[in-house]
């Protein structure tokens, strides 16, 4: 499985309130509506900048704070295919996998805003075609790869009825 898209670079400690703020997420389960507001408190025009299939590239502790699953779901609905970060907060990391949003831990410092990226999930490789560099991602546990391959926990659980291979 491999995906191509452009990088949108953010800093450290991007919390889930920034990804989708409480004032929006409580109102509705319509992710297309929430998508319009992703990152708006730190980058008001972010939604307009996204092309479907793009990636967020961030520093450490991406997704810290609240457990809101609306954060990865709204990013997906906004067209973001995945997030590459130096590290993730754990609840966001699990939620992202469970929603089918790619999340990979890797050294993101060589990647610049706007770079053309290619992600190969199964071999855990990230290619920055603009910089001409290849970056190793930290391997995911098999259960997370299986959930991602089913497109998220809803499909996975419907298919298997329990967790396998743990």
């Amino acid at each position: 499985m491999s995906w191509r898209g452009y990088a949108h670079k953010f800093g450290d400690d991007i919390n889930t309130d920034y990804i989708i703020s409480g004032k929006h997420k409580f109102k509705t389960l319509d992710m297309n509506e929430l998508a319009k507001h992703v990152m708006e408190d730190i980058d008001p025009n972010f939604y307009q900048k996204i092309k479907p299939g793009d990636f967020i590239v961030a520093g450490k502790n991406f997704g810290c704070g609240s457990s809101r699953e609306q954060a990865p779901r709204a990013l997906l609905a906004a067209g973001i295919r995945g997030v590459l970060a130096l590290s993730f907060a754990r609840i966001f990391f699990r939620n992202a996998i469970n929603c089918g949003l790619l999340v990979l831990e890797c050294n993101t410092s060589p990647i610049q805003n706007g770079d053309e990226m290619e992600i190969d999930l199964l071999v855990g490789k990230i290619y920055d075609h603009t910089q001409g560099v290849q970056i190793e991602a930290r391997p995911l546990p098999q259960v997370m790869i299986d959930i991602l391959q089913e497109g998220g926990l809803v499909n996975y659980f419907k298919k298997y009825g329990s967790f396998r291979g743990v």
């Binding site: 457990s67 699990r94 939620n95 469970n98 926990l153 809803v154 659980f157 329990s162 967790f163 743990v166």
Partner: peptide
């Protein structure tokens, strides 16, 4: 803390990984 879909799985099966 967990997310919503994991809460759904916990409600159905009583277990999580």
């Amino acid at each position: 803390g967990i997310g919503s879909t994991e809460l759904a799985v916990a409600m159905i099966s009583g277990k999580l990984w």
